[in-house]
Amino acid sequence: MDKEKEIKAYLDGELLPEVRMKYEIAEEMGLLDRVLSDGWKSLSAKETGRIGGLMTKRKKEKLKK
């Protein structure tokens, strides 16, 4: 999926739950504007790792419920 289609899918609510979670976490961290304008490559390794870590944490929490 190219960048424009992914952004449109995010805004329209048509993404897979895992991808939606990635965007939601980026938004919570205040990074969503940069991701939407410059893509995921614009994030540092630290920022990307933090998003991945939070995704893993949330997935584990869902499994416990």
Results as ranks from 00 to 15, higher is better:
L36F: 02
L54P: 02
V35Y: 01
L11K: 15
R50W: 07
E61A: 11
A9M: 09
M1D: 10
I51D: 03
K8Y: 11
W40Y: 05
E24N: 11
Y23T: 01
I51W: 12
M29H: 00
D2Q: 13
G39Y: 03
D38Y: 09
E28I: 03
L36S: 13
M29N: 15
S44W: 06
L36T: 11
K64C: 12
V35H: 14
M55P: 03
W40K: 13
K64L: 10
E14F: 06
V35S: 02
D12S: 13
K41N: 10
M29V: 05
A26F: 06
V19T: 12
G52T: 00
E61D: 02
G49T: 03
E18Y: 09
Y10T: 04
L32D: 01
K5L: 07
A26N: 02
E18G: 08
L11C: 01
G13S: 02
K62N: 10
K46Y: 09
E61N: 00
R58L: 00
G13V: 12
L54V: 11
M29W: 04
E6H: 00
D33W: 07
I25W: 07
S37P: 02
K59A: 14
I25M: 01
Y23V: 06
G53V: 07
E47M: 05
M55V: 07
V19R: 13
E18D: 12
R58G: 09
L15M: 10
E28Y: 00
G30N: 07
E28R: 10
L54I: 05
E61S: 09
T56L: 07
T56G: 10
K46A: 10
K59H: 12
Y10R: 00
L63H: 07
A9R: 04
K3F: 04
M21Q: 13
L43I: 12
R34S: 06
S37M: 05
M55F: 00
K57S: 15
M55G: 04
K59N: 04
E28G: 01
A45Y: 15
G39H: 04
E27H: 05
T48N: 13
L15P: 05
G49W: 08
K8W: 08
T48F: 08
I51C: 08
V19S: 14
L15H: 06
E14R: 15
V19E: 05
S42V: 05
E18P: 03
T48Q: 08
R50S: 06
L63D: 09
E24R: 15
Y23M: 07
K60I: 06
Y23E: 01
T48H: 08
K65E: 13
K60H: 07
P17E: 09
E24M: 13
I51S: 06
Y10M: 09
W40A: 07
E24S: 14
D33Q: 15
I7M: 14
L43Y: 04
K60Y: 06
Y10K: 06
L54G: 01
K57E: 13
R58P: 03
A45N: 09
K22V: 11
D12M: 14
P17C: 07
I7Y: 11
L31R: 05
R58Q: 02
M55S: 01
G52H: 01
T56K: 13
L15G: 03
G30E: 04
L43Q: 00
